[in-house]
Design a protein around this nucleic acid. Structure first.
Lengths: 213, 213
DNA sequence: TCCAATTGTCACCGATTGGTGACATACCGA
DNA sequence: TCGGTATGTCACCAATCGGTGACAATTGGA
């Protein structure tokens, strides 16, 4: 302890904004950055607090812990799902199959551009957590409403289990997007460039047209 | 320290089998149990050693660390993949689409009965690790050989991107099986009972027949 | 029989984890 | 202006993590 004193002139504190909402927002953004960069596995209060430049104690104070923060984040990550319905119905075709195809393609594009949601989806698969399941419940509810809106007054072809087929397509989409982001491909199918994805989506489109014929 | 002495008559040591192969096997089985019960996220040398009832030091001695153990385990988990080809070709039909359908259905059944591989697949999605990627490389290579064997002398219909379509179907299968195991369903489609799966597989079959018509 | 290498055991290390109590400071209404 | 409260900071805790060195005990070959 030589010349360094503590209670003297402050070097550069300047960090005390005293704004709870802003701090909460910083936490949410920091969590998104961490989850997008290091993956959902290495997500914790320490990492988030360090990324946010705030104290982890505040996470407990404001969100009640990591679960609360995740839940708050989950509420914001799935917002664009609601935008899919107008986009798909805008190209208004009275054909059920064509509407679904447009919706799925739009969904794939959006998901491909949202690394946070990708990691969240991957994490849900790794292990069922109470917070994650709640997030998933909210998202799948929004998804169901979207599907309903897209369908509109059209009707699926008879003798076809449309919900099951849609679930299968959605499952393939989720898996392929995540695999493409983390490993660059799956089962010999490269999923790196836009051209790769164009090929994959063409194949999926042909699958759907054949199914909903 | 009353009457309890250490260097006197041994109570029940009896644990020193001095069998390296047996110990390695114990580690592999313990790792499989841990990964099947607690998920891949909570997999570590401490947990594995505790489950195996052996010392973690031996993991480093025998496998060179956790990565080596995972690699050794991955080599054994994908063994049944090779058995899919004879099963699918046994119902020998010269139709490419029918063969693929049989193979995919058999694959789904096997994967549904292999919780370890499920967790491994889920973990690969969560984060790319060097060990995991090597495991995946070995497995997808076996998968490719299997697909080749199943196809045999049949040929896919023209104007159809068979590799892409097969990748899509495989992706959907992986995702649905994992979701069914961890969350019991996906996108409104329940995946708990055998009846649920029968429905899902029927939908997938109709998809494939339509695509490979 | 004896010795050396293999196998197993234990104690310990530093780093990191989630979580909390105590305290300093800034804000805002009375 | 004063004082209470919300906000932010820091130090600390026990538990657990991956990893290693030192040592005891067993085995098998010379």
């Amino acid at each position: 302890m030589l010349s360094r004193k503590k209670p003297s002139a402050k070097p550069a504190p300047e960090r005390q904004t005293r704004d709870r909402e802003a701090t909460e927002q910083r936490f949410l953004e920091a969590a998104a950055r961490v989850i997008a960069r290091d993956g959902a596995a290495s997500l914790g209060v320490n990492a988030i607090a360090a990324e946010a430049g705030a104290d982890k104690k505040l996470i407990y104070r404001y969100f009640g812990g990591l679960d609360g923060l995740l839940e708050a984040m989950g509420a914001t990550t799935a917002l664009w799902i609601g935008d899919l319905a107008p986009a798909a119905t805008a190209a208004s075709d009275t054909d059920y199959g064509k509407r679904m195809r447009a919706a799925f393609l739009a969904y794939a594009d959006k998901l491909r551009a949202d690394p946070v949601l990708q990691k969240l989806l991957a994490w849900e698969l790794a292990g069922p957590s109470d917070a994650l399941t709640r997030i998933d419940a909210a998202r799948s509810k929004a998804m169901g409403k979207m599907m309903f809106a897209i369908r509109g007054d059209t009707t699926a072809p008879p003798n076809i289990d449309a919900p099951a087929i849609n679930a299968i397509v959605l499952a393939a989409l989720n898996y392929l997007v995540i695999r493409g982001a983390t490993m660059g491909g799956f089962s010999g199918l490269s999923l790196k460039t836009d051209a790769d994805w164009k090929r994959a989506m063409a194949a999926l489109e042909s699958l759907l047209t054949a199914a909903y014929r």
